[in-house]
Simulated scan of single mutants.
Amino acid sequence: MSGRSDSIRVQINKSKTRFTTNLLWKNNEKWVLGSIIPLVLLIIWEAAARVGLIEAHLLPAPTRIIQEIFEMGAGGTLFSHVGATVFRVATGFFLGTIAAVLLGSAVGYFTVLEKLMDPLIQAFRSIPSLAWVPLFILWMGIGEPSKVTLIAVGVFFPVYLNIVSGIQGVDRKLIEVGKIYGFTSTETLRKIILPASLPSFMVGLRSGMGLGWMFVVAAEIMGASQGLGYLLVVGQNTYSPELIIASICLFAGIGKITDALLKILAERSLRWQDSLSNQR
């Protein structure tokens, strides 16, 4: 009897261990799989640099770049540069998103406003980002307002387009259901249109954040004294490829973190959807 109890206890412990392992793998699967290719590329890069296949003055080894980042951190300059860039992106992202939500909601909901405003906005969207730089410097100088405004412009267009597309793509049958239930225009907007357009809006936020990180480079190149874009200019002027690539890696890492946060927000906001991603 005692042997049978021990056998059952062993089976229970094995089941618990298997369940815990499966749970840990499920929670970390995307991080593990997503890190395989970057790690392989880093190993190849490091090996090629050590055997001399890659010239150090053109493309330093990953260990040299990591050393450069740690040296900036030890010197106290890393966090000031990262903080300045993150502040500019966050401020520009907030302002651009607010403007896009207000204007995009109105244009998407009211046909008259779409006919009046959308052609002009689409024309502005075709203007390259660097074309705004001299104009913003002329209007606002080389201080923070011009940089934040340039980032906000970059964020505005993808968020605006996705909001308009999301609102105009709402199924008319849902609107008819709201009319059957006697919803007012405000209730229809709040209970039907906004939830139905939320997936498109979240895609717009992620796209806007990505463009915000792209536009901050142009913003910081135009006369900044701090920021990761400023480090790119310093690395170019001082012929320091390790500083340039370190700044690019920091852009990539912080940009990935912000995108991951927005993705988590989107997943939690859209749990009510019966979608393929929610079934995985």
Rank of each mutant, 00 (worst) to 15 (best):
F79K: 07
L116M: 10
I37R: 03
L95T: 07
W272Q: 11
I151S: 03
V101K: 01
A100Y: 08
L103G: 02
Q273G: 02
E144S: 04
L120N: 14
T186C: 04
E71K: 09
P62T: 11
K115A: 13
G75N: 09
A152S: 14
K115C: 03
G143S: 03
Q122G: 09
L211N: 08
S185I: 00
Q122I: 09
K179E: 00
L33D: 15
L231H: 10
I37P: 07
Y109I: 07
F251N: 09
A152M: 06
L150I: 06
L103W: 00
R125D: 14
V40Q: 02
T258D: 15
Q122F: 04
L270Q: 05
S185R: 01
I264M: 10
S129E: 07
T111Q: 12
N237F: 06
Q279M: 15
F136N: 01
K173D: 03
S247K: 11
F215W: 05
K179Y: 00
S2R: 14
V148R: 00
V148Y: 01
K173E: 11
N162A: 05
I163L: 00
G143K: 11
G141T: 11
I163Y: 00
Q67V: 13
P158D: 07
S165W: 02
G210D: 04
R18W: 12
Y160G: 14
E176Y: 09
I245P: 03
Q11G: 09
V40T: 00
I8D: 10
I121P: 10
A131E: 02
L120M: 12
G166M: 07
T97G: 11
L59H: 15
G255H: 01
A152Y: 09
L205Q: 14
L150K: 15
K16E: 06
S197V: 02
L39C: 11
V40G: 01
I12Q: 15
V159I: 05
E68V: 12
E220H: 14
T91D: 04
F94S: 15
V234D: 10
L41R: 08
I36Q: 09
L228E: 13
M214N: 05
W139F: 04
P62A: 15
S2H: 09
G76R: 12
A218E: 13
T97Y: 14
D274A: 15
L58M: 09
I248A: 10
S197A: 04
D6M: 01
E220Q: 09
P134Q: 07
F87H: 11
E187D: 03
M140R: 06
G182M: 09
L250M: 08
